[in-house]
Design a protein around this nucleic acid. Sequence first.
DNA 1: TTGTATGCGTTATCAG
DNA 2: CTGATAACGCATACAA
Lengths: 343, 343
Amino acid sequence: MYKKEITIYDIAAALNVSAATVSRALKDHPAISKKTRGKIREKALEMGYQTNALASSLRTSKSYTLGVIVPRLNSNFMSTVLAGMEKAASDAGYHLIIMQSFESEIKEKENAQLLFSHRVDGLMVSTTSTSPEPAHFKPFFAKNIPVVFFDRIPQKYNQYNCVTIDNREAAWQATRHLLDTGKTRVLHITGNTGIQVYKQRLEGYKAALSEANKPFDHQMVWETGLSVEDGEISAKRIMTMKPLPDAIFVANDTCAITIMHHLQKNGIKIPEQIEITGFNNDPFSEFSKPSLTTINYPGEEMGIKTVNLIIDKLNTKHIEPKGKQIVLKFGLLIRESTNQAAK
Amino acid sequence: MYKKEITIYDIAAALNVSAATVSRALKDHPAISKKTRGKIREKALEMGYQTNALASSLRTSKSYTLGVIVPRLNSNFMSTVLAGMEKAASDAGYHLIIMQSFESEIKEKENAQLLFSHRVDGLMVSTTSTSPEPAHFKPFFAKNIPVVFFDRIPQKYNQYNCVTIDNREAAWQATRHLLDTGKTRVLHITGNTGIQVYKQRLEGYKAALSEANKPFDHQMVWETGLSVEDGEISAKRIMTMKPLPDAIFVANDTCAITIMHHLQKNGIKIPEQIEITGFNNDPFSEFSKPSLTTINYPGEEMGIKTVNLIIDKLNTKHIEPKGKQIVLKFGLLIRESTNQAAK
DNA sequence: TTGTATGCGTTATCAG
DNA sequence: CTGATAACGCATACAA
């Protein structure tokens, strides 16, 4: 019933050569004569031979596969990163095994183990862990398998391979921009500050306040999940504040736009009464009314750079064991949701 | 310099048992006594053993890996589908290797071969091919590896495993809704109609026109890439039309919102002068001004159902060789970008 | 230029 | 309950 696999042995038998010759011919090994190479290729095609990458990987201990772990993959930012990764990997002859941790450290750990057991050649992770040094990457380090952290990195792993932007600086600019127009009650809606990116954005927010001699009020920092639902809840909560904040720095666009929408429904004028800045530059941030001031986060570039860093490491593993930190440029995009005035 | 892999032989040696026993113990084979099982587990942990999935797959010819090919993964719709897939796969003990075809049939073919050589247990594809029966899936069929087409399916593959929505009906409803408010010049902006989904949406559009006794004008159907850029170009082109269309049915939200935005910039009132409907129900479609009437396309459900269909097939391969067609429910979401009137 | 022999790490078969 | 052994499909060191 089941068809047996067609192997190099089958085509060797059909051609009265050895399996070794077939193996070499199929890889265009120069030691094999053009003629036999041609014959073998042809026969392989004819017999519908398909190389078994598993066997090959086992033999060579090289899988040409990279593992990716992300918190979730259905955000515009993350899918853009992954698109860049897949492209760069594919161009270099690698494939991606992608897993989601769903913001669970346990799941992240399982994923890491799974990817290890699949003998990925490299690992890329945007961590969900709030541990300073999550232990589940140790096996990779021990075996000298390159690991690159992107976007979200564990707190004590700054000296490892990282591809990030300067979140503190970005948040500082966003907050500073709000303050420059004379605003005084700036609310900051962010994610879990146990996660570095949000912690750093909070620091940037604080720094901007302090620089402008505004007092920091921890009641003006809300940790949420930054989802659409969280935006709705936050908007409701904002409407109960008195006085209302006169500016909001939200740590992602999804949430920012949701909040803006609901505030407007409640009759709030944006940006006259409340200015808003987001983070990420999601495609629709430009098309909201008013368009959203935000931080341009170069997702595709991040994906490409992350993969390229891995591949660099793979090609020079013995030479350069040290971590490399890549910090990408971001941009503050000033749009209508804030008053362009100031400065 | 390099550490040797730790294998079941190492732990067997350390414990004075055979490798076979270790292998069985690690899989909780009931034939092994609780005591030895425990000892082996412990030792494995202590020695930092990590199973080699490659070797295991080679031996068992089961990889617990599913391949996915999509045109691109950085659209809200696709990343939602993939999120659903990854979740469902992970829940069933499978992993995903994801590849992009970038709307190239050649790349799609390469991807299929690659995934085949990686011995995926199943393949899920949203095809980019305009061939009626793309040949590159044949090896999977021949080897009885389940293939499920989702979203976009090749023209002659309706009898294979498919997970879709009724695009014709959806387009019909969208167009019909526009016509119901008395509009007469309905422009249809869509994708490559060599691809089934767009062809079907076009059919739905035509059917609605004909039903309303409106003539079909092929000049009122524009094939584009449906990207933001295409939206900008289309908007410009619309502004040169006289008379202007009084309604537009756009085949995705990204493009619809871009067009809406640019028309508004040119002083067009939406929906008074031009009504617009989109397709997909991207998250921000609700937050545009006016909010966008669109088709709710259940992406996550599609991902989950697709994976579940594959897994069903894997569990009953011999019993049910026939294709199964799953048609998901969609919904027409009427919002402010169209006049709610009519009927 | 080609062939022989062996091993990658695991699992399954067959004995004991 | 446990062990010896072969096999999965490929690639490479060594020989010819």
